[in-house]
């Protein structure tokens, strides 16, 4: 989700500058979502990744994809239920019902189909939602249920052997729409900074950056001059519109802006990811070309989660 109406600066607050990077006195505004984690294992990590990539494809924004999904991290054999290499995948959606629908479709089309895979719940606590529960019917009556340690698994005969899927996974309340705006002097600098930030953020557990490569260039605002559109380009951050838009947040030296959107299982996970992103930019320094960090919000009216950039900087910020 990346829909920002405007960026507000706290009245009288000043930007903080770190290693040549200016950090706006603003906050990212995020929303409650429903999320689940599933673990996909396979014969080797190539096939686990193939399934995970397919399953999390076209899942950048709930606006038109139904869910936001991404690979959380790769799993080593000792971390998975069946001792094979695997991938942890997170899915986020605006409602539990939509999440269930997306989960079933995506696992059905991308994991059930993918050679050698198995799929398990990646969360223990939470409301149960079907994982293999309905996919089992693909077995046309040949499917077998197996209870192991209080968990039910379905075993569906397929051409390479059997597809094993845990019956349910758990759905929890989560946070979607954390974000960072990276304002840079040019495209090369913006991309390099965003890539570095995303890499650092991927090491944080419990989050995904759902856009391609973790980065979105089409930051948006709510509404449009066209009645049929719900969102449109975030004109205040478009370098092309600095002289034209009613209001701009950019100065003339900013030629390229990139946004990183973060969905996380908890508020703390999103904070940690944003902090890691900011730290990575700051570590590169303003000289590297990302000169300013901002964030998108709706004036604090729409989402209950506010990630103030200065607070994320912690004690150092006030220095």
């Amino acid at each position: 989700m990346s829909a920002q109406a405007e960026t507000t600066s706290g009245a009288g607050e000043q930007a903080v500058v770190r290693n040549g990077v200016s950090i706006d006195p603003t906050f990212a505004e995020a929303f409650p979502m429903k999320a689940t984690r599933v673990l996909i294992t396979a014969h080797n990590d190539t096939w686990a990744r193939n399934a995970a990539v397919a399953m999390t494809g076209f899942a950048t924004s709930v606006i038109a994809c139904g869910c936001e999904a991404g690979i959380e991290r790769m799993l080593s054999p000792i971390e998975t239920p069946d001792g094979r290499p695997g991938v942890a995948v997170l899915l986020f959606s605006m409602s539990g019902k939509e999440l269930a629908k997306q989960l079933e479709r995506r696992v059905g089309q991308c994991v059930l189909t993918c050679p050698t895979t198995a799929v398990y719940a990646g969360l223990d606590e939470g409301e149960a939602v079907a994982l293999g529960k309905n996919l089992r019917f693909f077995g046309d009556g040949w499917q077998i249920s197996k209870m192991i340690d209080g968990k039910r698994y379905w075993r569906v005969p397929v051409m390479d052997g059997e597809f094993v899927a845990q019956e349910t996974t758990a759905v929890v309340k989560a946070v979607g729409g954390g974000n960072l705006l990276l304002l840079a002097r040019d495209t090369d600098a913006a991309l390099a900074g965003a890539e570095a930030a995303v890499e650092a953020m991927r090491a944080v557990p419990g989050v995904i950056m759902p856009f391609p490569g973790g980065v979105v260039r089409s930051g948006s605002k709510v509404g449009s001059k066209y009645a049929s559109l719900m969102a449109s380009t975030n004109d205040a951050f478009c370098p092309a519109l600095i002289p034209l838009a009613k209001k701009t947040e950019l100065d003339a030296g900013t030629r390229c802006v990139m946004e990183i959107v973060i969905d996380g299982l908890t508020e703390a996970d999103v904070s940690a990811a944003m902090r890691a992103g900011i730290d990575a930019i700051v570590a590169r320094g303003g000289e590297a070309g990302v000169t300013r960090i901002s964030a998108g919000n709706y004036g604090g009216k729409l989402g209950p989660f506010h990630f103030h950039l200065h607070k994320l900087l912690g004690a150092e910020a006030s220095v």
Binding site: T41, P81, D82, G83, R84, A118, K146, I148, D149, Y153, R155, P157, D160, G161, E162, V164
Partner: peptide, 17 residues
């Protein structure tokens, strides 16, 4: 004669415990 290593892994680990 199909590959049942996935189920076996789940089951054998559980029984061992």
């Amino acid at each position: 004669s199909h590959d049942i290593r996935v189920t076996w892994a789940l089951l054998s680990r559980s029984l061992g415990k």
